[in-house]
Structure formats: C-alpha cells, structure tokens
Design a binder for these strands. Sequence first.
DNA 1: TGAAAATGAATGATCGTTCATTTACTTTTC
DNA 2: GAAAAGTAAATGAACGATCATTCATTTTCA
Lengths: 217, 217
Amino acid sequence: MHADEDIMPMAEREPSPRKGSRTAARVRASALKLFARHGYAAVSMRQIASDVGVQPSALYNHFPTKQDILKDLMLSHMRDLLDAWPPFADEAGQSADPLDVFVRFHIRYHLQRREEVFISYMELRNLEPESFAEVEAERRRYESILKAILEDGQKSGAYRIADTGVAARAIIAMLTGIPNWYRENGPLSADKIEEIYLEMVRGSVAATPLTASIESD
Amino acid sequence: MHADEDIMPMAEREPSPRKGSRTAARVRASALKLFARHGYAAVSMRQIASDVGVQPSALYNHFPTKQDILKDLMLSHMRDLLDAWPPFADEAGQSADPLDVFVRFHIRYHLQRREEVFISYMELRNLEPESFAEVEAERRRYESILKAILEDGQKSGAYRIADTGVAARAIIAMLTGIPNWYRENGPLSADKIEEIYLEMVRGSVAATPLTASIESD
DNA sequence: TGAAAATGAATGATCGTTCATTTACTTTTC
DNA sequence: GAAAAGTAAATGAACGATCATTCATTTTCA
C-alpha cells in the first residue's frame, strides 16, 4: 500500500513521507513487543506510549484507537506471511517435494517472527468481528496452500490421507507449536528441528499408515 | 473424574460443607466460562459477580483475589488431567497399544473439557511466577507420559524417533489443536477424528520414515 | 447464638480517549 | 536562501468510566 518506516502501515492516518522519527513504526514495534509479552487487554496505551518515549495522547496522531493498533499488527502479519509464500529457491531448502518446502518454510517463518505469530493466534478474540473475519480468511488461505499440496500427493498415490483438511490443520498445529518451546541457544539447531519435523510430517501422511509389512500385496 | 458443582475447591477459604448455594463452585463455573470467552485480563470481578448473581464484594468471601480464581482453575485442571490418566479399560478404546490409548485419551479429554484446556494454555502468562511454575511442572509431567511411551516403542523397534522429547511435544501440539476447529455438529464424529489422528500419529513415529518400499527385507 | 455469606457504599488507581495549545518541521513566497 | 505560512506531531491536563479491593453492616443459616 505504501512505505512507512520500513514497511506496512495500515489503518492509521496516512503520514506524508517525512524524514522524521517515524513514530508510527515505533508504536507498532512497541505494541508488538508488549502485546506479545502481556496480552492486548493487559497492555495500556500509557505503557505503549512510555515504551515509545512519547506522551499517551501522541499515539492518537498515528492510530485512532488501541484496537486499530492490534488490527494493524495482525492483518499485516497475515499478509506478510502469505506474501512470503512461495519461498525463493535458495530459501527453505531446495527440495523438489512441495511438502518439504512448505514444512521448512513454515518452521523458518514462524521461528523468525515469533511475536507476530504469537499475537495473531492469541489475540484473535480481542479483534472486532470484522477484523477477525479478515484475519480468519487469510488463515484459511494459508491452510489451503498445504491442503492443495496434500491433495496432489494424495492423487499421485504418494500420500494416504483420510481427510486433507483435517491433515492440513493437524500438521500446521504441530509445526506452529515449535516456537513455544524451541530456543536458539538450546541443544538443537534450527536445521535439526526442521529435519525432525519433516520426517514426522512425511510419516504422518505416508502411504503406509501403520501396517508397514502388510503393504506387500 | 469429578463432579463439577460440588468438589474441588482449592485456594479459596475452605467452606464447611454447608448444604446451601455452593457459591464458590458457581464462581469457578462463571469465571471459567468468562475467562475462556474473553480472557482473564478482559474479565472484571464485577462481570463474574453478575454472572454468578451476586454482588462483587461477595466474591471475596470465597477467593482472596481475582488471581486466586485463575490459579485455582488452572491448577485444578492440570491435576484433574493427570488424575484421569490412565483411563479405565472401558474408556479411550481398549487397544493394547499404549500410544493408541494415549492419543484417544488426550483427544477425548480435551474435547470434553474445552474451556479448562483453553484457559490453561492461554492464560499461562497471567499467572504469578510461582503458580506458573506449578502449572508448568504438571504440564511436563503429562508430557513425560507420552515421552515414556515413545521411548518404549523406540526400544522395542516399533518406532523410529530422532528425539522422543521433541516428538512428544509435536504430537501433543497436533492433538491439542483439535478443539480449535472441531465442532460436535460438524461432519466428522469424534470417533472418526480419533481414528484420523491416530493414524497420523502412528505414521509420524513409525519405523518406516518415508521409504515405504524399502521395508521389504 | 454464632459464624459464614451477602450487601451497599466507598476507596484510590488506572483505563481509553479528547482537546486546546505548543513545538517541530515542510513548503511556499519573496 | 531567508522569512513567512501551513501542517503534522507532540504535549499536558483533563474527562467520565471502570478497575480490584475493603469494610461496616445486615442477612442467612446451622
């Protein structure tokens, strides 16, 4: 839509491209951090203002309400996520298997944008109905990417899946849980995590459900 | 594992077993519903009192603070969950496979106690550090049940798992996501859901990662 | 009769938001 | 290029509403 500090303003009053302090972007950054840490309802406009280094009333030069800040953060996150797909060939591994590509992409993106991801799940219920519907629509669009991959593999006989919609949700839930426990400085590299989950995901949809030896006929 | 209305007080002032209105239990029920729907931080003591049908000050005859209500709900949920394991032979299917039993148990329990489950995940950050540590310890105990099952299967050669701790978290994340989308009156029966997820979980840890045809020797 | 439970009123604190005013900066004019 | 004009951004004070909690008093009930 236009460039603000770096990217992505949305609902606030459109600032002409000044060269100044880019307050709107700093409001977004502070709100993102605070909402992720304490939750939308537990964060006050005064806290955000204080973190930005400005008086509370100044926030209203950039966002009409607190709700609009949340809306901005969540919608721009969903758009960024969908814009980032598909990854460039040098990202997310160079496998030819679309499921591999998706799994690696999802894990990397979700580990890179922890706060955005966290907010976009946790604060759904604090969105006004219209914004909720928008975010939900984007989420379904994302889900349908994986669903299409699973359907293709199903048709080709590579996968055996009872319900591709359910499977897509199951896989995404599994992958999205990673940032809840994974720590950069932990014993496992991000690459190793990708491999472990990739293997589990492949197994969960593989055309040999649990009867590995019965498959012989 | 327990009846909702009567037993299970915890942090509030212990009421002698009067036969009266059991207000404490009604406070728990209202708070559970409201916290699940709007979030702890967005629910006021006045709302809870109004839902119970009592004046706000009356709540303090049963719980010293709002925080204690949350603590009570979350800790008693975790204890109930752990107490409910292992299921009786006539619950959660009668499979001899411990993984089957766990998966069915987890799905059923989480579909039966949606609000408790939801709160216990969403409101973790609103707990005081000490209570958080307690809940977290219980969560790890639960996780270790599955981890032990995976380790056994690993040793016996039934499963092939790179990291049983990671696999346990992955499986639990996958299963715990079900209540987010599953609806009783939807197209899928709870039993069908169990079967679908069971097959996916089995596949994700099966000793035939993705090389289905190499298993022939 | 005694204790638990509920009431009604009040506490000070904090909430999101508004607004008149001042400050900072860009654009226009000379 | 400097001064003037114009606009966006920030301030400081204030609004009414609502917050969790307290407490003296009354009611309920064993």
